[in-house]
Design a protein around this nucleic acid. Sequence first.
DNA 1: CATGAATGAGCGTTCATTCAT
DNA 2: TATGAATGAACGCTCATTCAT
Lengths: 191, 191, 191, 191
Amino acid sequence: MNKTDKRADIMDVALNLIAERGFHDSPMALIAKQAGVAAGTIYLYFESKDELILALHRDLEVRITEMIQEGYPAAASIREKFLYMNRKVLKYFMENPFHFRFMEQFFNSPYGLSHRKERLLGKSDKSKIMIDIFEQGAEQQILKNLPMSALFALAFGPLQTLMRDHILGFLQLDEATIEQVTQACWDAIKK
Amino acid sequence: MNKTDKRADIMDVALNLIAERGFHDSPMALIAKQAGVAAGTIYLYFESKDELILALHRDLEVRITEMIQEGYPAAASIREKFLYMNRKVLKYFMENPFHFRFMEQFFNSPYGLSHRKERLLGKSDKSKIMIDIFEQGAEQQILKNLPMSALFALAFGPLQTLMRDHILGFLQLDEATIEQVTQACWDAIKK
Amino acid sequence: MNKTDKRADIMDVALNLIAERGFHDSPMALIAKQAGVAAGTIYLYFESKDELILALHRDLEVRITEMIQEGYPAAASIREKFLYMNRKVLKYFMENPFHFRFMEQFFNSPYGLSHRKERLLGKSDKSKIMIDIFEQGAEQQILKNLPMSALFALAFGPLQTLMRDHILGFLQLDEATIEQVTQACWDAIKK
Amino acid sequence: MNKTDKRADIMDVALNLIAERGFHDSPMALIAKQAGVAAGTIYLYFESKDELILALHRDLEVRITEMIQEGYPAAASIREKFLYMNRKVLKYFMENPFHFRFMEQFFNSPYGLSHRKERLLGKSDKSKIMIDIFEQGAEQQILKNLPMSALFALAFGPLQTLMRDHILGFLQLDEATIEQVTQACWDAIKK
DNA sequence: CATGAATGAGCGTTCATTCAT
DNA sequence: TATGAATGAACGCTCATTCAT
């Protein structure tokens, strides 16, 4: 087992534990035990628990960005781009509910706050596609004349609520509903 | 200072602390100190930290429910009812950002989960207006043919995201934007 | 309700609580509540929890001493005196199991230790009858030639063990068994 | 210092503290301090204070059982077996007064009660020798016709009382007295 | 690199006692 | 006398982090 393996094991276990139980109910000792390493070993790969959590978040962000970019119909209409992205994000989180739960925990914690504040100026890669869609939409007068973060809220807020309900078992998302909701989000932002 | 004062002081301090720092970074000792009482005093009014948190939630729920019902245009069209409610909720949370932050913390914790599970069967008063709007809308074929929780997500998901951004300072919500967003939410759910 | 009533209520409740749950699981607040008085009221009658406990012990000691002396066959043979006393003590505690449990708790605590140490010199009233029996027995060469505390142990140790088992439900003491055990204790000390 | 050392240190200190001061006047912090470890360290070896206490009891029970069985005259007469055991127990506790005090505390607490209740059905090893003696005695018509717990009380109750007095300094037990008392206990149970 | 025993500050909670009313 | 709200030291216990091996 090489260095990368152990690091990956730790991250994997930590992601799942935190997604299921939250930061404060995921002690380092438990993460270590489930990852099959000693408690001290985690500190060879991560400076602190905070660093581990931030690393997990960075990791997820990269994976999600890549996922969105893969197969992105760069040449299609704004509407099609939007529907594509929305569908894809929804399906990704349905297939990876722990990633969704982790992200929710993250943004609902001091980590998330400072993270977002840092990103305010230099926009992240993740947002690039969003900006692509929303700015093009504004130029072409296709979208409502709203601040970008308002468009963002209208486009993704519902997905977040929906995912939460789905993961907690309050709702069964099927293909047809996903399609309708995705379309409804478009209705919300289009002019 | 009478009994109610002290209880109210504790709740007030706890609400603000928890809204700003989360449950796990709001020790009882700190709540007590900021409320100007001894640590043990909190336990005269609340059985445990959990009970304090649940009491805060119950309290907020009542206030929010009352706020929505106040001036509710029961005789108006569904669209007008919806716009009224959405606007009002948004304004309330803008004026009481700590209430919003607390609620977010609450629903993103074991408390919130079990709370929602309990409410699944016997719908709460809070939801009554929602159900009023959504069920009437379905009957009158005005709204999209979606599960109620999907409609709920489309109607309120954006507000949540928006509020978060507003509170964290990423966005300045003004009257005009509120009006546009509210309208956009209606576009999302209407047929 | 006069002063004595309240004092008596507090002592009564405290005795029962302590007998059932022990000293440290009988908070003053609970004693007060069950006695129908305020917590502070106890301190009008007793300086502290310790004083309350010591008062309870003194009270019981008096009652038990009186009980033994009542009907004591001062003119009978040593054997009959002894059997009388042993039977009577056993029956008393069977009828007042909480008194027994309290006494056990008491002697098994710092209170009991210091209490006994104090009594070492000036013998208590309680022991007077014992001394009567044991010293007479020694003079008349009826009893084994043992230190008084050894005789005491042989005469009462078994009763204590038996009472404990009886109260905890490990044994059902009936008249016949009491008679046999009492006789057996005599066998142990007689020459 | 190896793992066993630290565990043993903690147990040793806890035994002595509890024997002298009782369970609720022996805080974990004090045990830790006297054992030369940090408070948290105790929890590496024992799940809780309760577990520590139960472990102490189990440990003592084993030692005492072994002590009794060592040199037990299995082939001798019932009387000799009984005298052997009684003498040995008495001497053991005289040499290890803290073990006696601990056991007293233990059986005079919720721990002891539930422990005895559990043992009522599946008799413990410790009792095996007792049962050996008492049942054989009953069969051979040597002992009084009494319930086993009554015989037990007559045989050991006095030792308990005696030990208590000895440890508290109210009585100096010498060889001759031990012998006489042991014999007196036999007188109490024999037919 | 890896271990895991050890640390100790900090947590939620209890309760004997006080004191303003 | 009587109250009971208020106190705060002390408790059992957790866990992120360190360091000798």
